[in-house]
């Protein structure tokens, strides 16, 4: 990453902005939980907010916004694919089983 002083001091302003956004994000997460969105939509909302906050951290604090190294991007893409595979795992186990067997204990 380029690292002249001017660049870095520009970053500093971005850091403060992200901090404010993250704080607001946290408040929104808590607020959303108070209004009792029915399950499973409550997870969806919470995860969307978390994803937004996490992207800010990754982009600004972890400098991905300024990162030009292709290595890192390839790595992250690979990681995202396998992460998705991992996340499929729960649904894989259940979705095409007969209804009564979908509860874990029923065949465990």
């Amino acid at each position: 990453m380029s690292g002249s002083h001017a660049d870095v001091s520009k970053h500093v302003r971005a850091y403060v902005a992200v901090f404010i956004a993250l704080a607001i994000g946290t408040i929104v997460t808590v607020a959303a939980a108070q209004v009792h969105i029915p399950h499973p939509m409550n997870y969806v909302v919470a995860m969307l907010i978390a994803l937004f906050k996490a992207s800010l951290v990754a982009a600004i604090f972890m400098h991905l916004k300024w990162e030009r190294a292709a290595n890192i991007w390839i790595l992250l893409a690979l990681c995202a694919v396998f992460f998705a595979a991992l996340m499929l795992l729960p649904s894989l186990t259940t979705f095409d089983l007969p209804k009564q067997a979908q509860r874990i204990g029923a065949w465990g």
């Binding site: 997460t29 939980a33 997870y43 919470a46 978390a50 996490a54």
Partner: peptide
């Protein structure tokens, strides 16, 4: 932690 917080404390 950003992910852990809602999942454990708020759901």
């Amino acid at each position: 932690w950003i992910f852990l917080f809602p999942v454990l404390y708020l759901m």
